[in-house]
Amino acid sequence: MAGDLPGGAPVDGAWLVVGLGNPGPDYATTRHNVGAMALDVLGGRVGGRFGAHRRGRADVLEGRIGGPGGPRAVLAKPRSYMNESGGPVASLQQAFKIGPERIVVVHDELDLPFGALRLKLGGGDNGHNGLKSLRRSLGTGDYLRVRLGIGRPPGRQDPADFVLKPFSSPERKELDVFLERAADAVEELVTLGLERAQSSFND
C-alpha cells in the first residue's frame, strides 16, 4: 500500500462507502434508513446517479469524494433487506478489490441520541442486524463506521418497531442538517483520516 496520511487514510486507492437501509418506498423515510439517506446526500455532492451494479445487488455511484481531486470512491446502497446487507457489500468488495480498511459503513445507532454522530474503527454489532450480516459476509468487523444517532424508543416500544417508523415531526425539521453533517463526516474521514474526522465530528 502507498503511504498514509495522518490518521490512517490511504493516499491512493478506492474506497467503498456503504449506506445501510431497507429497499423500497415503504422504508425510505424510516429511522433504519438514515444511512442510505446520508448516501443520497453524499451522492448529490459526488454527482451522477445511482445505478444497479451487475454483481453486487446494490445501487452504486462511482466518483470522487470532496471534489475533482479527491479520493476515488464507490458509493453503495444494498438492495437487500438490512439483515442481508453483508452479501451485496462482500460482492462489491471483491468486484472492486477494496480491503476492509477502506470500507466505510454509515448506519443508524440506537445508543446515540437523535442528531448525534460518532466515527470509529471496528467494534461490536450492538444488536444491529445490518452490522451482524456484514461481519458474517466480510469475515471481520474491522471497517470504519459512521454511526448516526436515532435515539432509543419511548416507553416500552420494541426497538425493532421503532427503527421501522418514520422520524417524528420535530426530528424531520432537523433531519436535513443532520444528513449534511453525516456527508461532511464521510468526506473528512476519507480525505483526512479517522483521527482528524473524530476530532471534528465526534460529539
Rank of each mutant, 00 (worst) to 15 (best):
1 M>H: 09
1 M>N: 02
2 A>M: 03
2 A>E: 15
2 A>V: 01
2 A>I: 01
2 A>P: 02
3 G>W: 04
4 D>I: 01
5 L>N: 13
7 G>V: 11
7 G>K: 02
10 P>Y: 10
13 G>Q: 05
13 G>L: 02
15 W>N: 07
18 V>K: 03
18 V>G: 00
18 V>N: 03
26 D>K: 04
31 R>G: 02
33 N>Q: 13
34 V>E: 07
34 V>P: 12
34 V>C: 08
39 L>V: 09
39 L>Q: 13
39 L>T: 05
41 V>A: 01
41 V>Y: 00
45 R>P: 01
46 V>M: 14
46 V>L: 14
47 G>P: 07
48 G>D: 12
49 R>Y: 11
55 R>E: 02
63 G>A: 06
64 R>L: 11
66 G>C: 14
66 G>T: 08
71 P>Y: 10
73 A>I: 03
75 L>V: 10
79 R>E: 01
82 M>K: 01
82 M>R: 04
83 N>D: 04
84 E>V: 04
86 G>W: 02
90 A>E: 10
91 S>K: 14
92 L>T: 08
92 L>K: 07
96 F>Y: 13
98 I>M: 03
100 P>N: 01
103 I>R: 11
106 V>H: 08
106 V>K: 00
107 H>G: 03
107 H>V: 12
108 D>C: 04
108 D>N: 05
111 D>T: 13
111 D>S: 15
114 F>S: 15
115 G>K: 00
116 A>L: 11
120 K>P: 10
121 L>V: 07
122 G>C: 00
123 G>K: 06
123 G>T: 12
126 N>V: 09
129 N>W: 06
130 G>H: 02
130 G>A: 04
131 L>A: 07
132 K>W: 04
133 S>Q: 02
133 S>Y: 09
135 R>N: 05
139 G>V: 03
140 T>F: 13
142 D>M: 12
146 V>P: 07
146 V>R: 08
147 R>D: 10
147 R>L: 03
156 R>N: 13
163 V>A: 00
163 V>L: 00
163 V>H: 00
165 K>V: 02
168 S>C: 10
173 K>V: 14
174 E>G: 12
180 E>N: 13
180 E>L: 08
183 A>E: 00
183 A>R: 01
186 V>F: 05
186 V>E: 03
187 E>D: 06
188 E>Y: 11
192 L>C: 00
194 L>D: 09
194 L>M: 14
197 A>D: 11
197 A>L: 13
198 Q>L: 12
198 Q>T: 10
199 S>Q: 15
200 S>P: 03
201 F>D: 15
201 F>L: 08
201 F>T: 05
202 N>V: 05
202 N>Y: 12
203 D>L: 07
203 D>K: 09
